[in-house]
Computed example of a mutant assay.
Amino acid sequence: MFRLKTSDADTQPGSKNLFRLYRPILDHWRLYDASRLPPGLIAQEDQLSLSIREESLFQRIQLQSEVPDEQSQ
C-alpha cells in the first residue's frame, strides 16, 4: 500500500519513488488519496494489470513525478 497526500504530490519524494523505483519491481501496489477520510483508492496494479479509479488525479501525480529532461534545463 502506498499513501500520498495529493496536496503534497509535487513536493513529496514518495510519488517520485513510486513511479521511478518501486513500480517497475513490485508485483502489486495500491495508491491511495490520504487527503480525505476515509482514504480513497486512486489506482492499483496487480500482475501487470493497471486499474485506475481516479484518472485525472493519477495523471496529475504521475506528471509531477516525472524526471525533467536534462537537456531542457
Rank of each mutant, 00 (worst) to 15 (best):
T6G: 00
D27K: 02
Y22K: 01
Q71Y: 14
P39L: 07
G14Q: 09
L21F: 07
D27Y: 04
G40E: 11
Q59M: 08
P38I: 03
Q73N: 13
L21R: 03
E55C: 00
S35K: 01
A34W: 13
S35G: 01
D33I: 07
S65K: 06
D10C: 01
K5P: 04
L18N: 03
S65V: 04
S15V: 04
S65M: 08
S49L: 11
F19V: 04
L41A: 07
S65I: 06
P24A: 08
Q12A: 15
R30W: 12
Q59R: 14
M1D: 15
Q47I: 00
L37C: 02
Q47T: 03
L18D: 02
R53T: 04
L31H: 11
L4M: 14
Y32V: 13
Q44I: 00
D8C: 08
R30H: 12
L37E: 11
F19Q: 05
L21P: 00
L26V: 01
P39C: 11
G14N: 07
L18A: 05
D69M: 14
D8E: 15
P24E: 11
H28M: 04
Q62T: 12
L63K: 05
H28N: 07
R36Y: 06
E54N: 07
H28E: 08
R23H: 09
E45I: 01
P13T: 14
P68T: 12
A9K: 03
S7Y: 09
Q64P: 00
L48H: 15
S7T: 00
I52Q: 07
D33T: 07
D27E: 05
R3T: 15
I25G: 00
S65H: 06
I61G: 02
Q12I: 09
D10S: 02
P39W: 12
Q62R: 15
D8H: 12
S51K: 15
A34I: 10
T11F: 13
Q62C: 12
E54I: 00
A43E: 11
N17Y: 04
S49H: 15
Y22F: 10
E55G: 02
F19T: 04
Q64C: 00
V67R: 05
F2L: 07
E70Y: 15
L4F: 09
Y22L: 05
E45M: 08
V67L: 06
S35P: 00
I42M: 11
E66M: 14
S72L: 15
L41T: 10
L31A: 14
D8L: 11
Q62A: 13
L57Q: 06
I61M: 03
A9H: 01
A9Q: 03
A34V: 12
S65F: 01
L4Q: 09
D46A: 08
S72D: 15
P39D: 14
A43M: 11
K5A: 06
Q64H: 00
L37K: 05
Q64F: 00
L21N: 05
S72W: 15
S7V: 03
I52D: 04
P39N: 12
D10G: 01
R53M: 08
R30L: 10
Q47H: 14
T11S: 13
A34M: 12
D46W: 06
I25L: 03
Q44M: 12
P68I: 10
S49F: 14
P38H: 08
I52K: 09
P38L: 03
I42K: 08
D33V: 10
S15T: 05
I52T: 11
M1N: 09
Q12P: 05
D33P: 03
Y32R: 10
S15D: 08
